[in-house]
Simulated scan of single mutants.
Amino acid sequence: MPYSEHMAETMRADLGVEPGLAEKKMFGGLCFLLHGNMVCGVMRDGAMYRTGKDREDEAIVAGARPLAFTGRKMGGMVEIDTGAFEDAALRATLTEFSLANAASLPPK
């Protein structure tokens, strides 16, 4: 099953209009990039956010869990399931962390 287009539209709205923002199909889902650096994305069972290692613990306390695609934790990345995705405040927090992280990286 592909990613939810409804979730992708919600994520687009959460991100707003940001210069340098782009979309790319990756990992069987849809990722959003800022100047070539991944910010977040939607996948079949939820969403992922690249908060950066410095904000990862805060994101987990807020309600996310560490991202582990292959059973191995990917540092600086968190995920939420479709139920948690309905929490607008959680999405706003994770989006803020992830946009700040991507903006701190050199453009690709």
Rank of each mutant, 00 (worst) to 15 (best):
Lys73Asn: 07
Met11Gln: 12
Val78Arg: 09
Lys108Thr: 13
Ala13Trp: 11
Arg91Thr: 09
Arg72Met: 07
Ala8Asn: 09
Pro19Gln: 07
Val17Cys: 02
Phe27Gly: 03
Leu34His: 14
Ala103His: 06
Ser98His: 01
Thr93Pro: 00
Phe69His: 08
Asn101Gly: 08
Gly83Leu: 11
Thr95Asn: 03
Leu33Val: 08
Met1Lys: 14
Ala64Arg: 05
Ala88Pro: 04
Asn101Arg: 15
Phe97Ala: 04
Cys40Gly: 01
Leu90Gln: 10
Asp45Met: 05
Tyr3Met: 02
Cys31Tyr: 13
Asp57Glu: 12
Gly71Arg: 05
Asn101Thr: 12
Ala59Gly: 00
Val42Ala: 03
Met11Gly: 09
Asp81Glu: 07
Gly28Cys: 09
Arg44Asn: 05
Pro106Gln: 08
Glu9Tyr: 01
Ala102Pro: 01
Asn37Asp: 06
Tyr49Gly: 00
Met26Trp: 04
Leu94Tyr: 10
Gly28Trp: 09
Tyr49Asp: 00
Ala59Ile: 01
Val42Tyr: 03
Thr95Leu: 01
Arg12Thr: 07
Gly41Asn: 06
Gly75Glu: 15
Ala89Asn: 07
Val78Ala: 08
Phe97Lys: 09
Ala64Pro: 00
Thr51Met: 02
Arg44Lys: 11
Met7Ser: 13
Glu58Arg: 09
Met26Glu: 11
Met11Leu: 15
Phe69Met: 13
